[in-house]
């Protein structure tokens, strides 16, 4: 089915295994300090933390938009940094949704969704278009498929961006503050799409400030500060019985 069938691990093995991930920027900023965690198949993990805590950086290491300086990352049993790994093939399995949507402005909404499957996967154009239309329907954008991104609202653009990432049939979806650039009245429509995705069993790693979403949808919540992973807990204990003093401080500022 996929390119990695030969060394497919047992279904119980975590789909993401990050071990002692270190990231140091050329300017000397130590963005990630020995971050280790795993994400199970179908799990929804939310990462919280103050701004500059490294949560977005960590998310971006999971599809190698940031190259790490130490440690290792395994995606579905494949070491991202071993010599034989084709990073483009790996990225096809890890969809990403950005804070600023990053839709391609010269393509219509539907063309945005179809571009990568056509040019990368080499699938049949007819099949790709059918799949794209299904996805647009799923994110509630089937009425605006022929619009250019500049003619769509932020919430609509972000829903197209989710459809675009799903078009590659990824095993994992990464969300980098998907609602932070939206007007408040549009946050709900994007979160609804993410909730239905979670309900379908998609593996999701979400960096967000939406505490309600974290509490309602997350299987596990991570708390990061200054590049270190401080707390990993289920949402109930995370919010109602915070153990770590830094987490208590963080939550007290929010609620």
């Amino acid at each position: 089915m996929t390119k990695h069938d030969s060394n497919q691990p047992a279904a119980e093995a975590p789909i993401i295994i990050a071990t002692d991930v270190d990231k140091i920027y050329p300017n000397g900023c130590h963005a990630l300090k020995a971050v280790s965690t795993t994400v199970a198949r179908g799990e929804v993990v939310v990462i919280l933390g103050p701004s500059g805590s490294g949560k977005s950086t960590f998310l971006r290491t999971l599809n190698q938009l940031e190259v790490i300086n130490g440690g290792s990352i395994l995606i579905d049993g494949v070491d991202m940094y071993s010599k034989g790994t084709n990073i483009n093939q790996l990225r096809e399995q890890v969809g990403m949704v950005f804070q600023n949507f990053n839709l391609f402005p010269h393509k219509t909404a539907l063309e945005n969704v179809m571009l990568a499957p056509l040019k990368v996967s080499g699938r049949e154009p007819k099949e790709v278009e059918e799949h794209a239309r299904d996805l647009m329907y799923k994110v509630g954008m089937d009425q605006r498929m022929q619009n250019y991104p500049s003619h769509l609202s932020g919430g609509q653009q972000q829903r197209v961006a989710i459809a675009r990432a799903l078009a590659m049939k990824p095993k994992i979806m990464l969300f980098d503050e998907p609602t932070s650039a939206l007007d408040p009245e549009m946050v709900g429509e994007v979160l609804d799409v993410m909730k239905s995705l979670a309900a379908e069993g998609m593996t999701m790693v979400v960096v967000t400030h939406e505490m309600g979403f974290a509490r309602e949808v997350a299987d596990r919540v991570l708390f990061m500060e200054e590049g270190a992973l401080l707390v990993e807990d289920n949402p109930d204990d995370f919010f109602d019985h915070p153990s770590h003093p830094r987490l208590k401080q963080f939550l007290s500022k929010i609620f």
Partner: peptide, 13 residues
Amino acid sequence: PSGQMEAARSLGM
């Protein structure tokens, strides 16, 4: 914007 390249690369291009 650099986000365009990132979005394209994150799709496996």
